[in-house]
Design a protein around this nucleic acid. Structure first.
Lengths: 221, 221
DNA sequence: CCCGTCTTGTGAAAATCTTCACCAAGTGAC
DNA sequence: GTCACTTGGTGAAGATTTTCACAAGACGGG
């Protein structure tokens, strides 16, 4: 249970979603092969990823869809709810806290903060935008465990520090800025500029380097 | 020039941003060490990444900030402009095409599409939302090279196919769904559900696995 | 010019991640 | 029960990525 890589976790997340779909379609069992096809990965990878957490399948048969989904749910920490605070109620922040999938997956936005007086007090659905100055007071009160940084880059580090001080254990950063947080705080960054630039790189260097897409399964014989 | 990994490119993107900042602060030269510190990476990694493209530094001195920035700019394909089409004018799509950094980095949103009749025709700034049915016609006309998928998951693959058919060479996908595209089309996916779930995983397994943050540079002696 | 100090570029080593290959276990037909 | 076939779990091999370590270049002081 000690050496789980970031990429393994990301794949688990994909497996989980695939299982949801297969279950909705009425599938009862699924093999590592089919699970792999749906995600552009090798069957061996699927089995290795899962075996890091236990033996969930049956030889000759595959995995029970419902059972494996529930196991992954627990492994990913989705069998409970998480209190989330969004800081920054601009376009990105708004898109985030009105995002359906958020609540659907167990993430409850219990607070939205902004620094702009024109925004403070506005209601969006059930949420009222609060002054970011009250973060230190409200976040612990509402048992916030995850903070989402959706501020301009200039304010991002400051906000991250405030979130950490308020006892948040995980931060999801959308500001295009590398944040520094203590080691015990988990940090994920979604950096649009990086994505765009890596896309531009791929287009510019298209002819030269063409790896990057999955190879076809290529089952000999 | 053939074996450039995805992670190298992402780091180049960070170096580029750091260089912009340092240049704005008036810095003239920078060592791999300082460049590394600003991004939570090792100096050796910085040098390896850069050396894959040439020799940009001077021994004993470091890198010339302006020169290296311009070189990276060209390497990343940012020394030209890219025509982008955004498909899906919901919250995410809106956040995207009004995102300042987009144009700032050379990405011009020349078309926004949606399928909802209530949205079609709406103006947002200089952009008018067009019927997605006209994608096949308008995208080639406007020389769109990059497509952004910001639709509900159900429509994502269909839209991706349409973009590919319209001659788009790169796709940035925000729908929580694995897309399949031909090998010659570059694809990047930003999947919020995956980010959240990997964050939840980290929090649940906090005590057990605590790698993931950078180690301190630890310079012996 | 020479010496001490700095810093890059880069093979080699180490660490990490992915794929292979095969055994064991399960199924269904007969 | 036996046989042909399927599939998971897993150690080992292979591939990739990161880090180490050091030679070679660059500078400044005297």
């Amino acid at each position: 249970m000690s050496g789980i890589s970031e990429s393994t976790v990301r794949r688990l997340s994909h497996y989980y979603r695939t299982l949801e779909e297969v279950e909705a379609e009425g599938g009862r069992t699924i093999s590592s092969r089919r699970l792999a096809e749906r995600g552009g990965i090798t069957p061996a990878q699927v089995r290795k990823d899962l075996s890091a957490f236990g033996s969930f399948g049956r030889r000759g048969l595959g995995y029970n869809v419902g059972y494996l989904r529930r196991e992954l749910r627990a492994i990913l920490g989705l069998d409970r709810r998480w209190n989330v605070a969004v800081v920054g109620a601009g376009r990105v922040g708004t898109a985030l806290y009105s995002y359906q999938g958020f609540a659907q997956r167990g993430f409850d936005v219990v607070a939205v903060f902004d620094a702009d007086p024109r925004r403070i007090g506005q209601r969006h659905g059930t949420t009222t935008i609060e002054d970011v100055a009250r973060l230190a007071e409200l976040a612990p009160q509402r048992r916030v465990e995850i903070g989402v940084v959706a501020t301009p880059p200039g304010a991002a580090q400051e906000v991250a520090d405030a979130l950490v001080a308020a006892g948040v254990r995980g931060i999801l950063n959308f500001a295009p800025r590398k944040l520094t947080v203590p080691a015990q705080v988990a940090l994920r960054t979604v950096d649009m500029a990086v994505e765009l630039e890596s896309l531009a790189f791929a287009l510019v260097h298209e002819r030269r380097a063409r790896r990057q897409r999955r190879r076809p399964p290529r089952r000999a014989g």
